[in-house]
Simulated scan of single mutants.
Amino acid sequence: MTGEAKRRRLAAGDLKDPDEEPISARVVETCRIGRGADCCRFLTFRNGFHCGKHDEQLASQIEARRPVMVAQGDNCEGFPLEVIL
């Protein structure tokens, strides 16, 4: 599956591919994965989705890269740095 096809499926909420693990409602609705500039810039992935907002070092790296990032959102107060289930 191409990257563009996958982005369209994520944006449409079509998560029925048996080879893909379902993405949590929080990542889809709050973080807005697959929504381009609306996607939260603090959403990270490392063995699962994480919120990088409260990790000072990671957040500062994200802010430094913001001018070249597609994701520009700051969609909530943040979640503890744990896997977003």
Rank of each mutant, 00 (worst) to 15 (best):
M1E: 05
M1T: 13
T2P: 07
T2A: 02
T2M: 03
T2H: 07
G3F: 01
E4A: 00
A5D: 14
K6H: 08
R8W: 01
R8C: 00
A11C: 04
A11H: 10
A12S: 12
G13P: 09
G13F: 09
G13Q: 11
L15Q: 14
L15H: 11
K16L: 08
D17H: 09
D17A: 08
D17F: 02
P18Y: 03
E20V: 00
E21M: 12
P22I: 12
P22V: 13
I23Y: 05
I23E: 06
I23C: 07
S24G: 08
S24I: 05
R26A: 10
R26M: 10
V27Q: 13
V27H: 13
V28K: 15
E29P: 07
E29R: 13
E29H: 11
E29S: 12
T30H: 00
T30P: 00
T30F: 02
C31I: 00
C31Y: 14
R32W: 10
I33L: 15
G34R: 09
G34D: 12
R35V: 09
R35I: 11
G36N: 07
G36P: 00
G36C: 03
A37I: 07
A37V: 11
D38H: 04
D38E: 14
C39K: 06
C39H: 05
C39I: 06
C39G: 08
C40V: 04
C40A: 05
R41Q: 08
R41C: 00
R41L: 01
F42V: 01
L43P: 00
L43K: 03
L43Y: 06
L43I: 01
T44F: 01
T44A: 10
R46W: 11
R46P: 00
R46M: 07
N47V: 00
N47S: 11
G48W: 12
G48Y: 13
F49W: 15
F49V: 04
F49Q: 14
H50N: 13
G52P: 02
K53I: 05
H54G: 03
H54T: 10
H54D: 05
D55G: 04
D55I: 06
Q57A: 11
L58F: 10
L58C: 05
L58A: 10
A59G: 00
A59M: 02
A59C: 01
S60I: 10
Q61D: 14
E63K: 08
E63R: 09
E63S: 05
A64Q: 11
R65V: 15
R66C: 06
R66N: 04
R66P: 03
P67N: 13
V68C: 03
V68F: 10
V68Q: 13
V68K: 10
M69R: 11
V70N: 09
A71V: 04
A71S: 12
A71L: 02
Q72V: 06
Q72K: 12
Q72E: 03
Q72G: 01
G73V: 02
D74K: 05
D74R: 07
N75P: 04
N75V: 04
C76V: 03
C76G: 03
C76W: 11
L81F: 12
L81K: 07
L81W: 11
E82V: 08
E82N: 10
E82L: 06
V83L: 07
V83N: 03
I84K: 05
L85G: 06
